[in-house]
Each structure stands twice: as structure tokens, then as C-alpha cells.
């Protein structure tokens, strides 16, 4: 299993419309729901917002990695969105987020391979080159090529 098993081309959005954190979370959750990744979008969003309550998922360096673990998730998935102007995410370093990875994890799932993938993604995001590549990617192909390297 690799990251591209969890994120398909349809789940990548290089021009997010929302201008606040909550708008962006809803927008991305809509994409997950539209692609049949969720059983119950609202219940999933509740889990995502609850996680944000516990502490911002804006980890700095222009990255936010919101996530929800919920029975409302049908298949383990990752949605990726870019907001070139940046959006306030109440980040640890106070900087706006430009890259958003929204993770959807089922409450119970066969095996934990998807957790391993998300772990690899988390570790990879620390890599400056990887982040720069994503920021500069001009189209979905380039994004997918970069995500392909996470396995």
C-alpha cells in the first residue's frame, strides 16, 4: 500500500475556494463525500472539528493536517488542497496554512496499513524539499507524482 491508494486525483484540489479554516474543511469534506469515501459527512466533520478543538492541526511551515477518526468514514482516505494565498489555521508558528491534508480514518478497519501510510506522510511533511515541491506543483499530475513517492 502507498499514499496514492488513499488519495486519488479527484481528491486533489489546487485552488481551494474557502477563505476560513472551517469553510475549507467543509469544502474538502464535500469532495470526500462526493467520491463515496464517507458514510456520513456531518458526523465525520464533527470528529474533525473536535480534533481541532483539542489543539490546532496547523503544525507550521505552511502545513495543516486536520484529521477525523470516525465510524462515519467508509474507506481510509486523504484529500489534498492548496490555498496559495494561505488561510489562518491558528498554527503553532502563527503562519497561515498553504497546504492542507485532510485525513479520514475509519473507527475500525482491517489491518493498520493505512495508518502506516499516514505515518509516512506525516514524516515526509517535515522534509523541506517535499513541501516546496507541493507548493510549486502547477497541476494535479505533478502533485500525484510527488505523493507517489510516499510509501
Amino acid at each position: 500500500m502507498k499514499l496514492t491508494d488513499l488519495v486519488s486525483r479527484e481528491l486533489v484540489n489546487l485552488h481551494l475556494q474557502g477563505s476560513t479554516r472551517d469553510e475549507i474543511l467543509r469544502e474538502m469534506a464535500d469532495v470526500l463525500a462526493a467520491n463515496g469515501r464517507l458514510l456520513d459527512k456531518d458526523a465525520y466533520l464533527d470528529a474533525v472539528f473536535a480534533r481541532e478543538q483539542e489543539g490546532s492541526t496547523g503544525i507550521g511551515f505552511g502545513i495543516a493536517i486536520p484529521h477525523g477518526k470516525s465510524a462515519a468514514v467508509k474507506t481510509p482516505s486523504v484529500a489534498f488542497g492548496k490555498k496559495p494565498e494561505g488561510v489562518d489555521w491558528n498554527s503553532l508558528d502563527g503562519e497561515p496554512a498553504h497546504l492542507v491534508f485532510l485525513l479520514a480514518v475509519p473507527e475500525t478497519a482491517e489491518g493498520n496499513e493505512h495508518l502506516k501510510i499516514l505515518q509516512m506522510l506525516s514524516r515526509k511533511l517535515i522534509d523541506d524539499e517535499f513541501r516546496q515541491g507541493l507548493l510549486q506543483a502547477a497541476n494535479v499530475d505533478e502533485v500525484m507524482a510527488l505523493l507517489e513517492t510516499v510509501e
Binding site: 480534533r51 503544525i59 484529521h67 477518526k69 506525516s122 514524516r123
Partner: peptide
Amino acid sequence: CPNGIAHTYMAAEKLSK
């Protein structure tokens, strides 16, 4: 971290690096 999905591993990676 609370969910044990992302931050745990980011912190691990940053500390190691």
C-alpha cells in the same frame, strides 16, 4: 498525540532530524 495519526510521527521525525 490524541489521535495518534499525524503529530506523533511528525514530532518523531523532527526530533530525529
